[in-house]
Structures are given as C-alpha cells and as structure tokens.
Design a protein around this nucleic acid. Structure first.
Lengths: 207, 207
DNA sequence: TTAGGTTTTAAACAATTGTTTAATTGTGTT
DNA sequence: AACACAATTAAACAATTGTTTAAAACCTAA
C-alpha cells in the first residue's frame, strides 16, 4: 500500500519524537526522515508543536485503549492483572521508549494530557477499580489503596524497559543479554505482583 | 557562608538541568538562575556540554556512593536490601526528578557514563553480589539472576517518583495526596520485594 | 490544451542558540 | 598610587531554529 504524504510525516515524527524527544530534535530532522522539505511538514501540520501534540495523543490513545480492552474483558480480576502485565511486556518489547516519551512530555507540559481526559475516564468507567474494591472487602485481595496497586503493576512493567541503558552498564551486559533478562523478568513481575496482591491464593505464589 | 561564583553556577545548573533537561534549557537560563552574565558561565566551564557533564557526574556519584555505603555496612543481606529501599525512598522524596534526569542522559548519550566506571565498580567490589549468590546457594534466597534482583528493587523505588505526573492525572489527585501515597508505598515496596526475594522467611511477608 | 486548484520546493525571515571578543571593573601586591 | 592579573560584563559572532513567502511542479477536469 502507498502511504500519503500526511501519513509519511506522522510516521517520521513518531520515530524522531520518540527517539529524541520534543526539544532535542528539529523540524528539518523530521522532514528529512520523511524524505521531503521542511515547509511541507508545516503545510500539513502548521507547527512543530501541533504535530507533536497529535503524535503524543495518538500514542497515549493506543496505550490507554489497550489497557481498557483488558479491563472490559470478562476474565476474573486476578487474570485481568496477569494479562495486563503480560500484554504490557509484549507492547514494551516493541516500543521500549514510550514510557520515557510519555513521562517526559507530562513533566515538560502537564497540560498536554487535557485532551485525553475522555480516554482516561474509560479506564475509570471500565469498573476495574470497583471490582478490586469488592475483592478487597471480601478478603480475597490485600487491602490497599488502588493508587498503590496501579503503581505496583506499572513500576514492574515499565521501569525495566526505561532503565535498559543504566542496567546494561551496571551489569556490563549488551542489548541481547538484557532482552533475555527482560523476558525472564516478566514471569517474576507476574508472580511477585499477583502473590502480593492476593496473599491468600497460593496457587502461583511460589515459582 | 558565602558561595563563590563557580559554586553558584553549579547550583544553578543543577536546578535547571534537572528541571528541564539538557536540550530543553539554554545557557542564558542557567546564567540568569545564577544571577550573572552568560559569558561568565563559559568563562568557568568552557561550554554548556562540559558544564552538563560535570553536573551529571556529580549527581551520579552521590547516587552510587549512597548505594555503596549501604552495601559496605555489616548488616545482614536482607537488612541491606531493606535499608537500600528505605534510603532510596528518602532520597527520591527530596530529589524526585533525578531518575528521569539520569535515564534521559544515558539514552541521549550512552558515553556519558564512561567517566563513572570506577564508581560503578565500587558496587561490584562491595561484595553484595557474592553475598546474594551465597544466600541463594544456601536456599535462603529465591534463586534468580542478580539483574532481576536489581530490577525489582529499582523499579519499585524509582518508578513511583518518575510517574508522579501520570499517576496524579490517572487518579485525579494533587501533589499533596500523591506524596502521602508515596510514603505508604514505601512499606508496600519493602514488604513485597523482601517477601519475594526471601519466600521462606515469613517474619515480614504479610503486612 | 489549458485553466484552476493543490502539492511541493527553494529561499528568506526573524528569533534564539552556544560561543567568543574586547572592553570594564575589581582586587591584591609592590 | 600604579601595576598586573582575575573576574565580570556588554556586544557581537556565526550557526541553527521554527516559520513564512513566493514561485515552481503537479494534477485534474473542462
């Protein structure tokens, strides 16, 4: 299939923005990556900032919608968490720079998330939070604030990908080695998080 | 005490670099923060890059030396881990932007860590890794690669601070609320990680 | 074919960047 | 006081930035 000019620019922008961040790249760099003139980028997207906003929002939408999809499934809560973690590892294996990209932008410009509030509400409205609270009141899940639950899950999924350069140099290993460690790490993350959230269920507490 | 010009520049650079990153700030911004002329910054540090390198290395040294200090103590291994996590939370409470700062720079310029290899070796030479391996062979610690152990610890310490802007917007809470969640989260991190690393020791497995 | 429009380009714009120059101020020594 | 040297500044430099302009190339329909 042939890609139109607009899509070519979006693809190039995604590549460059994610790799170098907003401030650390130039309009001309994006144009070059897309194989065209600088002016044409602005002809389609008015400005570097507007182009960035579009890319950022599309990345966030993909990310959040994948989460919501898991939450809306009719799996038991415990399996939702497991699936969420496994999916996250899969996704991040192919897009390891996305967490950094998102967090950087949010700290650079906290308002950038405003247009995404509707998508964010889909998470709340999916009912996962209520589901968790119910399990907690039944004693089937460790009682703790859901902010902590979110943190436990995302910490153990996202950080290992974000910290790749640091880990490689600390342990003196290369890219391939580290990727192998990451696939192993997925099972640890699943076992540990589930084991902590559901301390009464010993079916998969110990590897 | 009176601060000399050179130190004033370093302080200003630390503030600005950490807050905005290398690419997203200007030499003039640093000079203004230090209350002086742009040329004076270069008079003392030759260039923006050289100044950044100095700041980066000093931040990393503080960070790593604090780790080594824990490792060199004569606490039992389990307590070293606990102390490490607690110290990390303390440190990050007052310097929450440092992980982002470090990881960004490492991905922007992987060579920036080269001058720090000697300090990095202090971690290896502290003997923690051997200590862990010994405990594992004795069956006192869950058998797993030490890369994974490092990851488990750092994920659950650093990510919660890095993801503050994202978490605040996902759960619709403000800075104060989130800080409270972070202090609670420390106990979860300690309990979960220790419980996972030492599954046979039930003394503090369940909160 | 040609007229009217869209798409693409080269060139220019003003603003900002990191860095340097040359002059000014300050400080301490003789 | 006069000199020498360090510290500080204002001004300028060339390069790069995001953005705009005006012309060229392309397309489509009559």
């Amino acid at each position: 299939m042939i890609k139109g000019t607009e899509q070519k620019i979006k693809d190039a922008a995604l590549t460059v923005f994610i790799q170098k961040g907003f401030a650390n790249c130039t309009s001309r760099e994006i144009a070059r990556e897309a194989g065209m003139n600088v002016a044409l980028v602005n002809y389609y997207f008015r400005s570097k900032s507007k182009l960035f906003a579009i890319i950022f929002e599309s990345v966030m939408q993909d990310f959040l919608k994948s989460m919501v999809q898991v939450f809306q499934s009719n799996l038991p809560f415990r399996e939702k968490i497991r699936l969420l973690i496994e999916r996250e590892f899969e996704f991040l294996s192919q897009n390891p720079e996305i967490p950094n990209f998102v967090l950087n932008e949010l700290s650079r410009n906290p308002k950038s998330i405003e247009n995404l509030l509707p998508v964010l509400h889909m998470v709340t409205e999916s009912g996962v939070f209520d589901e968790a609270k119910k399990l907690q009141s039944q004693g089937d899940m460790r009682p703790m604030d859901l902010v902590q639950v979110t943190l436990l899950i995302m910490s153990n999924c996202q950080y290992p990908f974000m910290a790749a350069p640091l880990m490689k140099v600390i342990h003196g290993i290369d890219e391939t080695d580290y990727k192998n460690h990451l696939t192993v790490h997925k099972t640890h993350a699943v076992t540990m998080v589930l084991g902590y959230l559901f301390p009464n269920d010993h079916s998969s507490n110990h590897a």
